[in-house]
Design a protein around this nucleic acid. Sequence first.
DNA 1: ACCTGAACACCGTTCAAGT
DNA 2: ACCTGAACACCGTTCAAGT
Lengths: 249, 249
Amino acid sequence: MSQPHWLLHRGTPERRRLDGETIVEQAHALLHEGGSAALSMRTLAAALGTSTSALYRHVPSKPWLLVAIVDLVLAEVDTAPTYDPAEPARSRLESLSMSYRRALAAHPHLHEVLTSQVALTPNSMRIAEAALFCLREHGIGDDELTDAYNAWCGYVIGFSILETKARNVAPDPALQNAMRAQLEQADLDGFPILRELMAELADRAYGLRWQGDMLGSGDASFGWGLRALLDSYERRGGAQKRRTKGTAE
Amino acid sequence: MSQPHWLLHRGTPERRRLDGETIVEQAHALLHEGGSAALSMRTLAAALGTSTSALYRHVPSKPWLLVAIVDLVLAEVDTAPTYDPAEPARSRLESLSMSYRRALAAHPHLHEVLTSQVALTPNSMRIAEAALFCLREHGIGDDELTDAYNAWCGYVIGFSILETKARNVAPDPALQNAMRAQLEQADLDGFPILRELMAELADRAYGLRWQGDMLGSGDASFGWGLRALLDSYERRGGAQKRRTKGTAE
DNA sequence: ACCTGAACACCGTTCAAGT
DNA sequence: ACCTGAACACCGTTCAAGT
């Protein structure tokens, strides 16, 4: 046992030596528990038992720290199925998409921290490589690869961000009231479809809610749209394959 | 002319009577010009020539103000083509999608303000109504409507947010350097596709850039993915139509 | 009724000073 | 080399006091 004498610990809450990795992990923990409002350089330092200014010896800035948190979460995305030769191209891309979404959905406060930061980190590049690999296996030609990749990112990341955004109810009471009022029957005049379907859509469809999450319809809807997108990829890739085959022969 | 004597204006920069609408418009102008960093209650009050605390008589809170800005931008989305009987269902939904994206892309700092706020405002409901109308015209049945709507929102809004996010380069120098380094040839070991295609993808594909916008490939990629999605909607709607017709007869 | 200045409880970041 | 306290230039919001 290398436990130091208890006297040495007096007044120092968990004083392990500081380094960049532990700072990022603690920052992620604070974000996960209390959202971005609970993550300031001051609260972070307090949680680590150091002074605020000590953090700046291991971390260059708060924006840098936030990007590091995003990369930490992206480490959860599994790219192994992408290179599994037993799987057909379509289910490889589906696995990657679901894993991506699962990672983002598992961290409901991450979207608060994605603002304006481009994710050009080791893990985001690992995922980009895997996605491009899948699209090629689908038969998407190099001329369409950029568009297909951007559309895939737009759907998978965009949907997930939007979903977690929608899950976070505004803590502002003025806003809560304004939004509740908007859903009252009286304000649905002129919106016949919304009125007709509100019972079905409320708390299930994006935006049409004022509290709570999407009652698990996020999973179903994400899959529904993903299959729609993959259907088109498959058809387009198949068409491209036949075309190149035709010109070769 | 009801111009008051010039003496009455001494030292009062544009002192028009305060009201909620002008506050929201000025706030939007500040956001549009300088991003969210340039929009504080203090700078806003200064731009309007009043004290900070005076704003709180017309606007309940900053979160409320941000939602009002979003609604102001959503007013630009044109839902008229949705109800044009001359247009086929598919091009109605395409028009709506493009108009939505155009509004979001025209305000590159709006994404900084969308954080955690649900858009349950008059204009967001007008757009939701229009989208649901289009999906029904497509032949999507009520059982699939929620999923189809969520997938559409995820793609259209998600893609647009992601695109404007990516367009905003991090102002932090520490971050700029880290991202540039990530794109150096040395760091592309283990990413064969990225290395092979980097010349084509850089500054065109999402994430794979460290400065500048997506060189206009956002337009093309958005349209590419949208057509892929609409293809699937059309097929699914058609199948549903045939199915209900079959059971009816 | 509407606006003001001052105050409260926070931010991220820097920097001379300590060990 | 690493950490500290104090300071700087900001935040959103409140509230007694003015007119």
